[in-house]
């Protein structure tokens, strides 16, 4: 749901108003950055990606048909861009597995616990990572995820289940170490 004020800001930004777009950046920076970080597992890369996502969004904002779908539209751009970066990374390292970067300093929660869950996330497949982030972090419903990713709702359900099973398996193994 989008409130009226946000709707007006999006409308102004669509007409090329940079100040309005800055407001959108301020409102959405956290969740775009978190998504990029969750997908890429590296703060530096996530910052670059988030910047690219916003530039892409600014340039493509005229094509947004429904301002009420802004969040999912932005996340679709974010997801696609992160997947492209991961593909590029895989090409560069010429390996089937995603590399596991050292997770840089983070603050707030117990660092040991953070390392575990983030390390576990980095070991998941890209699709599993994406669906967990979209549901558990961004808070999208199954129907919205189906629309955003272009997969059937049944696949969303089964993919989320297998993503959780994989995360549980990896996390438990790491906790045991």
């Amino acid at each position: 749901m989008v409130d009226e004020e946000l709707s007006r800001i999006i409308d102004r930004a669509r007409r090329g108003d940079q100040e309005a777009f800055s407001e959108l950046v301020i409102r959405n920076k956290g969740y775009v950055f978190r998504h990029a970080y969750g997908m890429l597992g590296d703060r530096g890369e996530a910052e670059d990606a988030a910047q690219e996502i916003f530039i892409k969004a600014f340039l493509a904002l005229r094509n947004l048909d429904d301002v009420h779908a802004f969040s999912s539209w932005l996340l679709r751009i974010a997801s696609n861009l992160c997947k492209d970066k991961l593909k590029q990374r895989a090409k560069n390292v010429k390996t089937q597995e995603m590399p596991n970067e050292t997770i840089p300093d983070l603050y707030g929660v117990d660092p040991a616990l953070k390392f575990s869950i983030e390390e576990a996330l980095a070991r998941l497949s890209v699709d599993h990572r994406e669906i967990l982030l979209l549901h558990d972090v961004q808070g999208f419903r199954y129907e919205e995820i189906a629309e955003l990713t272009g997969i059937p709702i049944g696949t969303v359900k089964s993919r989320l289940f297998s993503a959780r099973m994989s995360l549980r398996k990896i996390w438990n193994k790491e906790e045991g170490n």
């Binding site: 988030a50 603050y107 558990d136």
Partner: peptide
């Protein structure tokens, strides 16, 4: 798992 995952991810800021 869901709770831990969400709280870890939400604690990440730009």
């Amino acid at each position: 798992l869901k709770g831990t995952f969400s709280s870890v991810m939400f604690s990440i800021s730009e």
